[in-house]
Nucleic acid binder design. Sequence first.
DNA 1: GTCCCTGCAAATCCTTTGCACTCCT
DNA 2: AGGAGTGCAAAGGATTTGCAGGGAC
Lengths: 132, 132
Amino acid sequence: MKTLKYSRQRESIKTCLMNRTDHPTADALYLSIREEFPNISLGTVYRNLNLLVELGEIISFTCGDGSVHFDYTTTPHYHFVCKTCGHIHDLPVSMVRETNEFLTEPVPGRIDSHSVFFYGECADCVDKKMTH
Amino acid sequence: MKTLKYSRQRESIKTCLMNRTDHPTADALYLSIREEFPNISLGTVYRNLNLLVELGEIISFTCGDGSVHFDYTTTPHYHFVCKTCGHIHDLPVSMVRETNEFLTEPVPGRIDSHSVFFYGECADCVDKKMTH
DNA sequence: GTCCCTGCAAATCCTTTGCACTCCT
DNA sequence: AGGAGTGCAAAGGATTTGCAGGGAC
């Protein structure tokens, strides 16, 4: 059991992630943080992100593009990935039925959690195409 | 438009993937193929897997563990990842309701596809714990 | 003072790529 | 013959790790 010590870097990583509406990768976050801490190293960003994931303070996921994204919202929710602009939008859990409701028959085993990704074109991009 | 030529290696990759019930990574598949083609190179395995994905003959996905898995089944279906034994089980699409049915309200945009991952303990692992 | 945390750089892991050669057609 | 496919090894990109110094407590 190790004791956690305060660090400005970790704090900055948390607040930065909290304030971003996108779901940045470690590198994208690193670029942001560098504006405040020009000397921060990528290794520190990775170390802290992994630590925060272990602590359950943030969430990490991959949405099919291979890269790992980080999310400050830890309560259950889903993601809508826009194929056109690349943005990853949050979908509130209320928008999707509960596991047992969207299963037509029980899964052979015990489900602890599930994740859903939607792929398509977000409202903004659909609108832009309309006006062309 | 390039013409495709037959290759024993590609054929072996296809049949090997078809015969496996798990959803191997490129490297896992490479180890299998080496039993038949001791000289096959990992690069060839990657090149062919990517080619087959482009052709739509196989599917690739990542289920949160960071690694890329390949699947010979291209018809829509979902996956159940066992946290205990690590196996990835297929779930027939009939087991899960259609997108529009499991959404409680329309998503702000156009959905082209979606993927669902379930995480938990598969029936086999649950049984094993019972008998202890 | 102790021990966690950092910056840096090297190491590691996974995947792609360039090149000379081989095998389809 | 022509060009797609291969093996090999080197290159690339993302992430982790070892280490010496710096900061929190």
